[in-house]
């Protein structure tokens, strides 16, 4: 690993100022960044830890949504939204393993936007709003392809607001080694319509499966999805599964998520 300067700001303002340095990178829980740095595949010159900023840790619920501080760990989310938003709690409770969940943060996950991560599906499926030190970004605008987001250089995710759907469920089919999602599907039934977000499957990263949303908007049932599967052309194909297999799983998991919504 290359060496770096380390900053642990106490406020968002201090963090933003530290992030302005050349080669600066935000450090959440580091559960993806550290392994990458060990392989010498990332070489930030300054690491700005976000876990010491009080205002960025914690969960609050109001007005039909939950707001989660950007530096809140998966473990805390799993515990704190268990009653208010159980589908999101279940998603958080199944990321990585317990030790990873004690360090990894929602902001870190969304900023990284790994194409097989769970949180992008939860945020996009919920229609969440990503709040940064500069602005609010709708999930529909935020995810811009594999490891690509709407964040500017140095921009910090301070919190994420998840509107609580009428019904929601996340179905994850594990990649057997990494335990990331080989395919994960988040289904949310909201007053504004059904949202279906798919992770793990596409070369474009997390996406909304609009055909399924249309079908479910007219009939929120497994039957409405009969015979439907994802578009195999866009799918990731690797040693764990072909594009066709992933496309098939998208259909299966979406049906199971709808069934689990009850």
């Amino acid at each position: 690993m290359y060496n770096f300067e380390f900053a642990k700001p106490k406020t968002v303002e201090e963090a933003a100022s530290a992030m302005a340095a050349e080669g600066a990178q935000a450090l959440g829980g580091g559960q993806t960044l550290l392994p990458t740095m060990k392989q010498r595949l990332a070489s930030p010159e300054v690491l700005v830890s976000l876990t010491g900023i009080d205002g960025m840790v914690g969960v609050s619920a109001s007005g039909g949504s939950v707001t989660i501080g950007g530096a809140t760990t998966h473990a805390q989310v799993a515990a704190d939204v268990a009653e208010s938003y159980p589908a999101l709690a279940a998603l958080a409770a199944n990321i990585g393993d317990p030790a990873v969940r004690n360090r990894g943060t929602v902001g870190g996950s969304l900023a990284n936007n790994d194409p097989a991560a769970c949180y992008p599906a939860g945020a996009l499926g919920s229609g969440a709003t990503i709040t940064t030190n500069k602005r609010d970004i709708a999930a529909d605008d935020y995810f811009q392809g594999m490891f690509e987001t709407a964040l500017d250089e140095g921009e910090i995710i301070t919190s994420v607001s998840f509107p609580i759907p009428q019904k929601a469920n996340y179905q994850k089919f594990d990649q057997p080694a990494s335990r990331f999602a080989l395919v994960g599907v988040f289904v949310a039934k909201t007053p504004d319509g059904v949202r279906v977000a798919v992770t793990g499957a596409s070369n474009e990263g997390v996406y909304r499966w609009t055909a399924a949303e249309t079908a479910l908007n007219s009939d929120f049932s497994q039957a409405a999805l009969e015979g439907m599967s994802g578009d195999a052309d866009d799918m990731i194909s690797d040693l764990h599964g072909s594009g066709a297999y992933r496309a098939h799983l998208v259909g299966v998991l979406t049906r199971r998520a709808v069934a689990a919504c009850g």
Binding site: P176, A177, S178, D238, L239, H240
Partner: peptide, 9 residues
């Protein structure tokens, strides 16, 4: 291709 515990199950 399966050169780490991320891909070797």
């Amino acid at each position: 291709l399966s050169g780490s515990l991320m891909d070797y199950a």
